[in-house]
């Protein structure tokens, strides 16, 4: 059978010619190895530009020699030495502890909210309820944190409220300008992260899981401990890391709520920059980055963090 007498195979051949006739730019936009390939590389480019490169620069600059106004290439661990032999290391450690405290409190307050929304709120309303937690972020962080001052101060709202209802007779002055104030500030600022990531993790937990628990007779505590927490572990961990790192890094909070001498990694970096000690600022940043990477690595080994994205994929 020749091609002329076989109209059956004619259309595909025609279409084939059509493709070949497409201009180059059209093929680039629609073809297999045109734009699709480029799109594939965008995350890679993004990660290089905004993650790998800054991290590498931070590490490199942290071992540069300090000059009066900037730094010059070289290799010295002087900045690290300065950090570990001054009060800064101790402050850093304290900030880590406060941050860890904020993580625990956020978990206790925030995760049950996530579970509640997932279990008890009708499915169609769940995302809207979760969206409510975004609202505070519409206000500048500085203002949000600053607004806590009149609430937490000696003659603030909290104290007068507690006195009004008769819980205390003397105003407590140990809230504002103390580590407690910092932890409260961190919890109030970062609680939504726990709610978000907790909810995201809970979304991956099918509704039937709760019904099975009811059927088997698992009470609230057993269900929470044996089922919910293990299944939501990646989300809880992600939220925790987020809060921990921000607690460590957002210098505003100890500056505004922590009183004289209150620091965290963020404020140490800020002070170092103000003092034009760039290698020290870089070293503190590097230590934070390493801390974060170590946490992420441990978390990934323990919980497989990719699981948190499962409900989306």
């Amino acid at each position: 059978m020749t091609a002329e007498t076989s109209p059956a195979i004619e259309p595909p051949a025609g279409r084939g010619r059509d493709i070949a006739a497409k201009p180059r730019w059209r093929r680039f936009l629609t073809g297999e190895d045109g734009i699709q390939k480029v799109v594939f590389y965008i995350p890679l480019v993004f990660m290089t530009l905004f993650f790998a490169l800054p991290v590498a620069l931070t590490l490199v600059w942290s071992v540069f020699e300090r000059t009066r106004f900037w730094m010059e290439p070289g290799f010295t661990l002087f900045a690290y030495e300065t950090f570990f032999t001054s009060a800064r290391a101790e402050n850093f450690l304290h900030a880590m502890m406060h941050s860890a405290g904020a993580v625990v409190i956020s978990f206790v307050l925030g995760f049950p909210i996530a579970v509640f929304v997932r279990r008890r709120v009708p499915e169609i309303a769940q995302h809207r309820v979760i969206l409510l937690f975004i609202l505070p972020f519409m206000i500048s962080e500085l203002i949000r944190i600053f607004a806590l001052r009149p609430v937490l101060s000696r003659h603030g709202l909290l104290n007068s409220f507690l006195m009004d209802i008769g819980v205390i007779s003397e105003p407590i002055s140990a809230i504002l300008f103390t580590p407690l104030g910092v932890v409260i500030g961190e919890v109030l600022s970062f609680l939504p992260f726990m709610v978000f990531s907790g909810f995201l993790a809970m979304e991956a937990v099918q509704k039937y899981v709760f019904e099975v628990c009811d059927d088997l007779g698992a009470g609230t505590v057993s269900t929470f401990k044996d089922i919910i927490v293990p299944l939501a572990a990646p989300g809880i961990f992600a939220g925790s890391v987020f809060i921990f790192v921000n607690g460590l890094g957002v210098g505003l909070i100890p500056n505004i709520l922590g009183g004289p001498g209150a620091t965290n990694a963020g404020s140490i970096v800020f002070e170092s920059i103000v003092a034009l000690d760039f290698p020290l600022a870089m070293a503190v940043s590097a230590i934070m980055i390493v801390t974060l990477m170590a946490l992420l690595y441990i978390g990934h080994r323990l919980f497989d963090l990719t699981r948190i994205l499962e409900p989306i994929s």
């Binding site: 099918q206 039937y208 899981v209 019904e211 099975v212 009811d214 059927d215 088997l216 007779g217 698992a218 089922i227 293990p230 299944l231």
Partner: peptide, 20 residues
């Protein structure tokens, strides 16, 4: 009575096992 207080037990349609 609640499900666990009844002498019943349920097998669900979906693969309702605890995945972990």
């Amino acid at each position: 009575l609640a499900p666990n207080e009844r002498p019943t037990s349920m097998v669900f349609q979906s693969y309702a096992l605890f995945p972990h």
